[in-house]
Structure formats: structure tokens, C-alpha cells
Design a binder for these strands. Structure first.
Lengths: 233, 233
DNA sequence: TTTTGTTGTTTGTTATAACAAACATGGTCG
DNA sequence: CGACCATGTTTGTTATAACAAACAACAAAA
């Protein structure tokens, strides 16, 4: 007989939370959308109780804003808020990269090399969605190497707050602006044990991406998804 | 007739959340305590639904840990976790102090001066509880001056995670170790617009407090409240 | 004495119903 | 035509009950 696996039933609110989280990170909800408990419950096929738990959790994490009447809305990100997030991200992720360079681990470095190669091939293939996925893994592989779980957790929170606009980057940005890749340089610095350089490269990477996104803001400061081709009506 | 005030009914889960939050910050829950929904509901005089919301929110913020069977427990803080928190706090609060020094505001500076005076009188009076309250206000007055709400919010989260051990400091520590007060120096640096110095002083303040708390750890690395007088059995 | 099975209790999870506030709708009166 | 009010609908909030998994206590068997 095959070895039996552990039986575990995850709670419904956990599944709902994970689905909402991923949808936010993938940018599947337009900023400003109000998420009503009953409609979400219907799409999930559950009662409103588990979705209420999931939404409460997301609001507590700052991923969803609570609008009037405590309704959960997908946050509009303004240019100012993006700048604020960039300040925090630079402080946290720069520090994580510096710590990672102090204690490099062979297994992680190998994974980073592999991810880097994969990312470059995905850039060539203009496969943006898959690129973003691997890009995320690359960054967090570094942060995990810092060995500071609370730091990683907090950084994850910041990424979730950027979630709705993370998918606003277009393939051309990835190809064009990154003439000299900060990812490659950061990894090289970590291998060399140079914490200062690693921090500098990560900060530069974050800052440049933020500057690109900042350029997408309209007159009111709201960040908007760029039109893929010709302008709409 | 006097001017009537706006009527607003805050949700029960909000009140429960605030009460639990304050109790955690004041150290009124011993680390390791399991908070059961029904017992909390009984003490609050409500059903378990609002309590569940409040606890869910606290767990999502990382203030409460979720133990086996998703029970909410007041986290034990180990020396390692305290060190991790210190790393994050230095990165965030140091940055906030630096930003604050870049844009000092007269009103805030006045409040800081007043808080500093009050703190010194409270030290002389050995009034620890009140001192901690003003100490908290002093720090967050600085961080608010940075003008980066997300930064303040994240710092607040870190303080909440330290909550259960924040009250472990004893009056003697406040009096003894702070021969030259980092708070005074930090405020002076901010007034002078010297961001580097402000960051340095805040980081030193955090680090020294963490070192003191780290000394309270037992052989297992668990932080414990020091006995006020003679040692217990 | 140790182990195993049973039973009762505790506790988080989920569904459901009742409630109140806010919003939208439409009709009436000026 | 426009302002105002009544009404129905939507939606978050709260209480309650039923459920299942985990734990504790105790009894029975090896």
C-alpha cells in the first residue's frame, strides 16, 4: 500500500483569503471596485461568514481599504501613496538584501541563478505574466536569505499594497529600461558578500520601477493602466 | 441649547479590537495565554461574532499568533524574534526620523518639547506606566512628522508585536541606562535638520532597549518579566 | 501498570435569520 | 419642471444554532 498522506481540511475563509489575495496581486480587480460580501459569497459558493473573515483579514493587512459604511474597496493608488510605499520598500528590502549578503547560502544562490536565467528567457519571449511571477520569486528568495521572518512578512505586506498596480508594467518597460539589470548586479553583490552593493542595487531596482509607474499617473495623481496599443475612445 | 454632537455607533468588533489592542500593549495578557472566543464574548457581553472579527484582525496584523486549531494565543517573544523585530524597527523608525528631520514642523516640535519635559518628570516620580504612554506618544510624534502614513502604520504594527514585553522594562532601567538621553539628542538633531544624527539617535535608543530586554531571556530564549523585588521560589 | 477505547466537553467553523443604516426609485405636491 | 417624501432594495452587523475536530477524563482490557 502507498504511504498515506496527512488529511487536512483548510477552513473556507482561508481558501477565500488566498483566492482574493492572488486576484489582487494579479491585478484582476480594478482599483475602486467595491467588494460586497454577498456577491463574493455567491461566486465562492459559501455563506457570507467565511468571506467576511477573509475580507476582514485583508482590510487589517492594509491590502483593502474600507470605504464608507465599512465597505471593502480595492484601493486606488495615488502617486503620493506610491512614493510613500517606495520609501518603506527601500528601507525594508534594502536592509533585507544587505542581511542576505552577510549570510549567503549555496542552495538559495543556485535557485537565484536559475530564476535569473528563466527571467531573461521570459523577457525575450515577452511573456509578462510569467515574468512577474518569477520576478516576485527572485526578490523573495533574496529576502528569505536574510533569515529575518518578520522582515519578509512585512515586505510581503508592502507588495500586496502595490498589488493592484503591479500588473501595470508593460513588456516594453522590462525590456527597455533595464539596459543594465539590477537583478544581476544584486545577485553578484550577494555572492561577493558585499552588503552595501546589494542594498544599492535593490534600492535602485525599486526606485526605477516606481519612477516608471509614477509616470502613469493622471492629472489627479491616480495611477492608471496604460493602454496596450492605440488609445481607446 | 448646546451644540449637538454627531451620533455615531461604532461597530462592536471595532470596540472589541481596540480593547484587546490596548490590553496587549499594556501587557495585561501573559504570553502564551490562549484567548477563546466564548470567554472573550462573555467578558465583553456580546456574541462571539464581533469578538471573532476582532481576533481575526489582530491575527492578520501579526499581533496575535494562531496556535493549533487556529486558536489565538498571546505570542511568546523569544530573544531571536526580538532581535528580528529590532532589525525591522531600526530600518523603519530610523528612516522615519531621518524624514522628519527633513521637514520639521513648529507645532510638532513644541509638542515634542512638552512631551520630553513630561517624560523627565515622570521618570523622577518613578511613574512607569504613565511614562511608557508618553514615551510612545513622543516616538510617534516624530514618526508622524515624516509625513509618510504607511511608514507610521507599519511602525505601529511593529510596536504592537512587541506589545507583550513592552511593559517588562522597569523604572530602574529608564533611570540608569539613559545617562545621556537619546530622546533629547534626537529632538535636537531634528530641530537642527540633521537627518543622519536623528536616525542615529533613534536607532541607538531602540538598540539599547532591545539589549536590555534581551538580557531578560531565560535559557530557552523566552523573554520573561523581571521580578519586581526579591526573586520568587 | 500501561494501553486503548469511549464519552462528554470545549472550541473554532459555518450557515442562517433578523436588524438597521444607507442608497436608489418613483410618485406627489408645489 | 423641480423639490420633497415614501418605499423597497442593498449591504454591513450581530446573534444564534448546528457541526466537527480536538482534548480530557475515565473505564476496561492486556
Amino acid at each position: 500500500m502507498t504511504s498515506l498522506k496527512r488529511i487536512e481540511r483548510e477552513p473556507l475563509w482561508d481558501l477565500a483569503h488566498a483566492q482574493l489575495r492572488d486576484a489582487l496581486l494579479a491585478g484582476r480587480f480594478a482599483p475602486g471596485t467595491v467588494l460586497t460580501l454577498r456577491s463574493l459569497a455567491e461566486t465562492f459558493g459559501t455563506s457570507i461568514t467565511p468571506v467576511r473573515d477573509a475580507v476582514t483579514r485583508l482590510v487589517a493587512q492594509g491590502v483593502l481599504q474600507q470605504g464608507p459604511r465599512n465597505a471593502a474597496i480595492v484601493p486606488h493608488l495615488t502617486r503620493n501613496e506610491l512614493n510613500d510605499l517606495t520609501v518603506v520598500r527601500c528601507a525594508l528590502e534594502g536592509r533585507a538584501a544587505r542581511e542576505a549578503a552577510k549570510k549567503p547560502q549555496a542552495a538559495s544562490l543556485e535557485r537565484l541563478q536559475a530564476l535569473l536565467a528563466k527571467m531573461q528567457s521570459l523577457i525575450a519571449a515577452r511573456s509578462l505574466e510569467s515574468y512577474l511571477e518569477h520576478h516576485r520569486k527572485f526578490h523573495f528568495e533574496i529576502y528569505a536569505m536574510s533569515g529575518v521572518p518578520i522582515l519578509v512578512e512585512t515586505i510581503e505586506n508592502m507588495w500586496l499594497r502595490c498589488g493592484p498596480v503591479l500588473s501595470f508594467v508593460i513588456p516594453e518597460y522590462v525590456v527597455l529600461l533595464k539596459g543594465w539589470d539590477h537583478h544581476t548586479a544584486a545577485l553578484k553583490a550577494i555572492i561577493a558578500g558585499d552588503g552595501e552593493a546589494a542594498e544599492r542595487e535593490i534600492v535602485a531596482d525599486i526606485t526605477e520601477a516606481a519612477q516608471y509607474l509614477s509616470g502613469l499617473a493622471d492629472a489627479g495623481g491616480q495611477l492608471r493602466r496604460p493602454m496596450p496599443e492605440a488609445a481607446a475612445s
